[in-house]
Amino acid sequence: MESGNQIVEEPIIEVQGLLTKFDDHVIHENLDLSVKRGEVLGIVGGSGTGKSVLLRTILGLKSPDGGNIRVFGKDLEMLPEDERRAQERRWGVLFQEGALFSALTVAQNVQVAYREHLHMGQKLMDELAAVKIAMVGLRSGAADLFPSELSGGMKKRAGLARALALDPEILFLDEPTAGLDPIGAAAFDELITDLAHTLGLTVVMVTHDLDTLYATCDRIAVLAERRVILIGTIDDMLQSEHPWIREYFHGPRARAAFAGK
């Protein structure tokens, strides 16, 4: 795996003309999005613009009502079951609340993929789980705790360790810093940047956190009016004349976040 953040001009995820609706309520219409290999992309948008729905659709948890989505150059909907499983092993997902399996300890949560997909021996599983747990910055004692015994920040880190178990190429994050205190959130931003760099990950995250956008994202995609209205760097955002983007990136909280950089 090549490391470093060289951004190669070849889309790893490509969404074209996506249509998503719930009954008569149209969420996305003619939505295009392309994610480059090796970049960290933030998806922002007002409440109800379907950021999380977009993430779920890319992951295949919800089928698109129109258009197509290609990840690693393949349309998930068209793939036979076993290829689809193989594809799913090439990405990792951190859900908003961690979504750890409550009946398993942190270490067992990380080992699920090893056990189910690779039939790995217990000794190596224990070692690798310990490596991942250390990598996401949890102390080693946390390995034997159950999810109910963890704080919010620890749950997210444990969820991240599970998402990284198979060394995925793409990491999806749903509101990674929501519910964390500013210090915890900043530490998590740093962790994600560090891991993306070390492991050569492509990261796609949905976030509301302006600090996270500034600290970690190479590019930002803005969701509004049922599609991606703008995708680009922070500077592109700041120069945009679109009223919502102006309000978002020039509001008092944005100025405060930007002043810190």
Partner: peptide, 22 residues
């Protein structure tokens, strides 16, 4: 290689993990 070195350093950071025996 540079990329491999980063990875080795990262993995080594945690020290040698001791799998706990319940």
């Amino acid at each position: 290689k540079e990329g491999h070195k980063i990875l080795l350093d990262k993995v080594g950071e945690g020290g040698v993990p001791k799998p706990t025996v319940p």
